[in-house]
């Protein structure tokens, strides 16, 4: 009896590994990266303050990449998310001068609205999502530049002097819980994934494709609002370039985390977590290890290749390649 049980268990673990290889391999890459920097920084990487740094620097990417899973699961991309983060931060900054309490809802609302417009362009005007978001990116960047007068704009002093780390942590946890549950434990996530695999088959199985595409873009919009607001508190200023790197970083994080850029069955929240951790640990660890200047770029690039090659130790999509 025992033996049979063991066998079943073994089989389960085996299949667990077999069908999650794309998610386990990146974790391995992350672990190796941490070990590498823990050694080269002589343990500094694992100090509490370093971990706090990684958290401080990594949370915007975590927020955006988690939301990005929603869009990428359907096989779309949101090129405007980075610009949206900066735009929401600027709006929040302006609103904060008027009323600091309204800054947060203003950021969320702005983000959601931008996401909604993105999705409406895609769903009803039939503009390819890629183009729609790219145009939105240009518009937001320009708007942001005008609003900040081309330079940077400091938040009201009272926002700067308060310590918002608890608020941030709470908001972040609530956000993560909600976004993970919706994606993995409700029909929304499962239907998004289905859309990424086959829009046709999904529609024939009762998936409301239009509604879900809209939902996915609103989610990235809201995430941009949240990230924008929290980044504003963190850096204490709005600027035209705030958050602009988050678009590419989110895509890279997800791909590093084991998700296919075409979305579908490989979509998972864990990809966003692993991927954004890899990116942040790499950026932070390299300084802690004392690698600076020209060598920094070089080593960063090379480490990136290694992590990617470990992360992609999975069956390739085509048998002949």
């Amino acid at each position: 009896m025992m033996v049979v049980n063991m066998d079943i268990k073994k089989g389960r673990i085996q299949s667990l590994f077999q069908y999650n290889k794309s998610k386990i391999a990146p974790l391995l890459g992350l672990v190796l990266l941490v070990v590498f920097f823990a050694i080269t920084s002589k343990g500094k990487l694992l100090e509490a303050s370093s971990i706090e740094n990684i958290y401080n620097q990594g949370f915007p990417l975590l927020i955006t990449s988690l939301a990005f899973v929603y869009v990428m699961a359907t096989g779309n991309l949101d090129f405007s998310i980075g610009a949206n983060v900066g735009f929401c931060a600027t709006i929040a900054c302006y609103v904060a001068f008027f009323n600091t309490k309204l800054a947060f809802p203003a950021a969320l609302l702005t983000g959601a609205l931008v996401g909604l417009i993105n999705s409406l362009m895609y769903v009803f005007l039939k503009i390819p999502s890629f183009i729609a978001c790219l145009c939105m990116m240009f518009i937001l960047t320009a708007a942001n530049q005008t609003l900040t007068g081309g330079g940077s704009k400091m938040v009201p002093v009272e926002l700067l002097q308060n310590d918002y780390s608890i608020v941030r942590l709470v908001l972040l946890l609530i956000y993560i819980i909600i976004i993970v549950i919706i994606f993995h434990k409700t029909k929304v996530g499962k239907q998004l994934e289905a859309l990424g695999i086959s829009v046709e088959a999904s529609i024939q199985t009762g998936v409301n494709a239009k509604l879900l595409f809209i939902v996915s873009y609103v989610v990235t919009g809201v995430a941009a609002g949240l990230a924008g607001y929290l980044m504003l508190l963190r850096v204490g200023a709005a600027s035209p370039t705030l958050g602009s790197s988050l678009t590419i970083d989110s895509i890279i994080a997800l791909v590093l985390g084991g998700m296919s850029i075409l979305g579908g069955a490989s979509s998972s929240m864990i990809c966003a977590v692993t991927g954004s951790l890899i990116t942040t640990v790499l950026n932070s660890g390299i300084v802690l290890a004392g690698m600076g200047g020209d060598a920094q770029q070089l080593i960063k690039g090379a480490l990136f290749i290694i992590v990617v090659s470990i992360s992609t130790l999975r069956e390739s999509s085509s048998k002949n390649f």
Partner: peptide, 26 residues
């Protein structure tokens, strides 16, 4: 001892992160 960190991009958040990392590196 001198350490030069290249911040990732011209953005305000990258600069703050860079300073944090330098402080953490001692």
């Amino acid at each position: 001892e001198v350490i030069v960190d290249v911040a990732q991009g011209f953005t305000i958040d990258a600069q703050v992160a860079s300073i944090e990392n330098l402080i953490q590196s001692g």
